[in-house]
Nucleic acid binder design. Structure first.
Lengths: 239, 239
DNA sequence: GTATTTAGTGTTAAAAGTACACATAGCAGG
DNA sequence: CCTGCTATGTGTACTTTTAACACTAAATAC
């Protein structure tokens, strides 16, 4: 049993003590396979040894929950300033075999390419899985995953979260593929592009794709400043 | 200092111990004044003595967070089966003067008339306030209130939560007034009614209003079963 | 029975969404 | 340099939804 597990055990065996943890569902988008993936690590708690689980940790006494989520993400991926959203708590009294552990779930959106740059320095027990490939997970993590997945799908329609899963510069086809993958639908190219243009939130760059064996597509970036302004005025994003 | 406060103090002074509480923003709709109201209680913690605060309590060891929220609501209002939604956690390290207290905020929707039936048996330190009348609150409760208020406004557009604030039988005008009050907008009567009808979720009753000094309006109920069915099929509510 | 008050209803114009197909730019390979 | 290949990029007609707008009808009070 690892140091982490010892610490948790010590923490929660004191009577009436409720341990508070954070768990992150880390989503990444694999452009090549057109798959939504999540990052999991090998579990260390005896009852679930060898199973895969979300990235989580005990809260520290002097940080906010969001700080804790950021700390975990930086520790496991080397990435800072990751898109994070709190989803909900999971508090069934029997959810953790070592005792009373309540967790706050977040989902995180990262650009897989950024992650790849850091991966060598890091914990090798982490692995990307296709979202539909995962059958069993430690604790109630499968449930947490499903709730967070559903939340991501809702958010994608009403907030510009998709751009956090793509490189800074992307083609219109890439966004469409992302939407089709995450929402599990097919979208009409011309209608989708019209909607995108009407948002007025994409900056058309001078650059085009490279290293493709066909006509290269134009590159765009998402204008976060303009979006913030638009949000401030109460106008809603919708795709 | 009350028993509750002693207990909390004891709880959180043990080193490294993070206390976990639940706070509920209890919304009620006053049809007469056309005002959205919230239920507050007098605070007991010395630093905020006499100020008003949300309905909250320490989590117990063997309940879920939702159980705790329901327990608090029943204790303070006498009501069971209240509409509840988890909103988010509040975890700033300095948010509570007695130590490290993290809270999970819920909002609750109740029919004020149901509450009135119970009010005599209960804690007299509770009071309804107009949502815009509240200036100062204990802890970070003003902030929690604002976040929950915003959440309610979002939900009202996309989920049939408004019906939890009205009597079981209501007139079309009553719903419209509720929407106008909560969203702080004016709505077109004919367009609003058309939308309502097209939802197909209202049951027209044989009954009509009584005790009004003019033409009485027809009464309706909301068909929760049909809504559940519609939700299951992936169709979305929108008003 | 007359005045008062709120209930209840339909049409038109503008905007948004949906369905649908082909010419073109750039690369690869001979 | 010419041909074939592949994915890019674009417009129009139709349907549905939203938005704006005003009067008659039903019931009560006096």
């Amino acid at each position: 049993m690892s140091l982490e597990t010892d610490k948790l055990k010590k923490f929660i065996t004191e009577q009436d003590k409720i341990a508070l943890t954070v768990d992150c569902v880390v989503f990444g988008y694999d452009e090549h396979d057109k798959e939504l993936k999540i990052l999991l690590i090998k579990n260390e708690v005896p009852q679930f040894l060898g199973m895969w689980s979300l990235l989580g940790d005990l809260m520290k006494i002097d940080e906010t929950i969001e700080d804790a989520a950021n700390r975990i993400l930086e520790y496991r991926t080397g990435l800072k300033d990751v898109y994070l959203e709190e989803v909900q708590s999971f508090s069934h009294p029997k959810r953790h075999p070592l005792g009373r552990v309540i967790t706050i779930a977040y989902y995180a959106l990262i650009k897989i390419s950024d992650y790849e740059l850091n991966v060598e320095k890091l914990d090798l027990e982490a692995k990307w899985f296709n979202i539909n490939e995962i059958e069993e997970m430690a604790f109630d993590h499968k449930n947490i995953l499903e709730v967070c997945h559903k939340r991501l799908q809702e958010r994608l329609k009403e907030r510009p979260v998709g751009f956090s899963l793509l490189p800074k510069k992307f083609t219109l086809q890439q966004i469409q593929n992302l939407y089709e993958t995450v929402l599990q639908t097919e979208l009409d190219k011309r209608n989708f592009r019209r909607k995108l243009k009407n948002l007025g939130l994409l900056k058309e760059l001078e650059e085009i794709e490279t290293e493709v064996a066909h006509r290269p597509a134009r590159l765009y970036t998402f204008d976060y400043d303009k979006y913030t302004e638009m949000e401030r005025k109460g106008r809603r994003f919708s795709l």
